[in-house]
Design a protein around this nucleic acid. Structure first.
Length: 349
DNA sequence: GAGGCGTGGTA
DNA sequence: TTACCAAGCCT
């Protein structure tokens, strides 16, 4: 790219962004930034972790609740693990919540409560990778950075009509993104290029008529926008099956904690058989007349789960080997993933 | 570096 | 229903 082309692209994008009026609660508006307002790195970091592979409408209420309950990184660092996991329940990718706490404790402890502003130090913190480090540097500190997320990948593979499929094209995309990034307005530029991907250069129906880069876009010139980015074809996800045993006692249900690592790590569960592609072998916690309640279908990233739910009232004197009985009214305070929320909902009172 | 890791919305 | 998608990180 020539210097002139880079300059034209930056100007067109930032003009579009300044006029767009789009605001997100964790972002500084350009006019406020121009007036000297500064961002709260804690609030920015929190938003970036929550937004990893998560839509803005889904993450937004969680962000407000977390900020109200734990207003500072010190407050979050002192929180109980179980409270944080319960507050994260329903947001998915639960390793993010465990890393969130670990990161908060590192920042509150050895970093004296201040988030670092250099990429190398940011990258050492748990849950912060290449994208998030650059996003924090740009949004929280307004320092030169180059954010490359799914939006930017889509915009740039179309702009330059990059034929290499993802993820192989990432190094090339990163180089081009770094050339384009505006060192004079890093925070606004980062927000602008992501907004462009989120609102104009969308996957299925890009609105090229309003795009500030349409005149420069190689894919648009050929009318093949939605063919980019190129991607490797994915394999079909398998179906796994299991049986969940809902043990009730006077309306309460037996819940226990899952192992800290792996799928739904550290979250609560209704006990079940193993989940496999073969029909599950029945393995109830005690002999009883188990009543079928129906089947829950739940889709994970790499497999679909069909979980048959059966229910029995616990015999007098029977005690769960781990976990405890939780009343329906107390389910909201539990770290209960959506899957088991569906299971509990199937178990009639 | 390829696969594990949630959830809810949309076509 | 099925497939794909959403501001990725970690191992």
């Amino acid at each position: 790219m020539t210097k002139l082309a880079v300059s034209q692209l930056r100007t067109a994008l930032l003009d579009w962004y300044d006029r767009s009026g789009r605001t997100l609660p964790w972002r500084l508006r350009p006019e406020d930034r121009a007036k000297g307002a500064v961002a709260d790195p804690y609030a920015v970091w929190l938003s970036e972790i929550m937004l990893q592979q998560t839509t803005v409408p889904h993450a937004t209420p969680y962000w407000h609740r977390f900020l109200e309950r734990w207003p500072t990184v010190e407050a979050l660092a002192e929180a109980d693990d179980d409270d944080v996991m319960a507050a994260w329940a329903g947001l998915g990718y639960y390793a993010r919540a465990r890393n969130l706490l670990a990161c908060a404790r590192m920042v509150a402890g050895e970093m004296a409560g201040r988030f670092p502003d250099d990429l190398d130090t940011l990258r050492t913190l748990p849950g912060i990778g290449d994208y998030t480090a650059n996003a924090i540097r740009a949004a929280a500190f307004d320092k030169p950075a180059s954010v490359v997320d799914g939006n930017v990948e889509r915009v740039l593979t179309r702009l330059f009509r990059i034929e290499t499929p993802l993820p192989k094209a990432k190094p090339d995309i990163r180089k081009r993104a770094a050339v384009l990034a505006d060192p004079d307005r890093p925070g606004d530029y980062a927000q602008a290029i992501m907004d462009l991907g989120a609102t104009v250069c969308t996957p299925r129906s890009p609105d090229c008529a309003t795009c500030p880069w349409a005149a420069h876009c190689a894919a648009h010139a050929a009318g093949v926008e939605i063919d980019y980015p190129r991607k490797l074809v994915k394999t079909r996800k398998p179906v796994r099956r299991g049986i969940a045993y809902a043990v009730t006692r006077r309306g309460a249900i037996w819940l226990r904690k899952r192992p800290e690592k792996g799928l739904l790590g550290g979250m609560m569960e209704v006990p079940s058989t193993e989940w496999g592609e073969a029909a599950p072998a029945d393995a109830p916690p005690f002999a009883a007349n188990w009543q079928p309640c129906g089947t829950v279908r739940h889709v994970f990233t790499h497999f679909t789960l069909d979980l048959a739910v059966v229910r029995a009232e616990a015999p007098e004197g029977w005690q769960p080997p781990d976990g405890r009985f939780v009343a329906r009214a107390d389910m909201d305070g539990q770290a209960l993933p959506s899957l088991f929320g569906k299971v509990v909902a199937l178990v009639a009172d």
